[in-house]
Design a protein around this nucleic acid. Sequence first.
DNA 1: CCAAGATACTTGCTTTGTCAAGTAATTTTG
DNA 2: CAAAATTACTTGACAAAGCAAGTATCTTGG
Lengths: 159, 159
Amino acid sequence: MTDAPAFRQTRRSLPIALLRARETVMGPVRDMLVSSGVNEQKWRVLRVLQEKGPQELSQVAAEAVLLLSSLTRMVGPMVEEGLITRATPPEDRRKTVVAITPAGLALVNAHAAQSAAILGRIEAEFGHDRLEQLLDLLEDLQKLDLRSGATESVRKTRR
Amino acid sequence: MTDAPAFRQTRRSLPIALLRARETVMGPVRDMLVSSGVNEQKWRVLRVLQEKGPQELSQVAAEAVLLLSSLTRMVGPMVEEGLITRATPPEDRRKTVVAITPAGLALVNAHAAQSAAILGRIEAEFGHDRLEQLLDLLEDLQKLDLRSGATESVRKTRR
DNA sequence: CCAAGATACTTGCTTTGTCAAGTAATTTTG
DNA sequence: CAAAATTACTTGACAAAGCAAGTATCTTGG
């Protein structure tokens, strides 16, 4: 029987704060991407492949934080653009392994400087230590397993 | 001609870190929303209206972090669902003011407990102080004006 | 070995995000 | 005070997000 403040203000809402912060950061990044010819999602895919090497679609989707279905739909175009290659490993033909091409790598490298500059500007304005601190906190946050024991409602266990 | 570490690992990339963190937080929230019958965006709109009262579309869009055009398209359905009402103020008939209905309020309140529980779980696992610290950092980050002096490209000044 | 179950994507559909234009209602200015 | 700007939305068009189903491929238990 409490009339407690059930909700925190949206200004102080974590999901919205994350959204807003991302909007701020992505502003200049999007400007850079315009000149690269790829969009945000394709850029993330290229970055993942550049960094981790050839991978299965599921893995790429997880790393690049996009749905497998979305990834499926962008692979075709990216292959045609010559940015990546697609292959089916003989040992498991359900899978699709994609890899970045030299052209894709070139595109990524061509914007490394701009990308670094953007980060530099953020770091300069925000402060190196605070940025590191923020990244640490975000990293820890994403490690939380919130799927475990719900407080009251038994999580839907189907699926 | 440098093979310097032009990119930080995606794990340490601020845009991706923000995305991932948001995914983590939104997981349980989305579960809750499924049972509420509204999606994330509609939920944000309802929360804004519940918290700030009747407002013009532009204001709601800014508060709920969505584009005015997107909001325009969801207002119709939400009115039909009986969650909000729409009105044109006589003193300025360009505007549209929306307000939450008792039904909309009921929907929001019906999930206040779950919502609070989710936040509680995050706070419990993450730590109250660290959560506050994170919110402070995010709030400061979103205040940055990164639109100022681009490194090399002259920012599009039109608009 | 074979039907039943997992996996790893694919597709279909509806809702949003984005951007560019367009429209109606005020304000401002010559 | 009428034409030119502004403001506040709307619409259109198309890519992408999300969610539900569907389709090959393995993998397994009987």
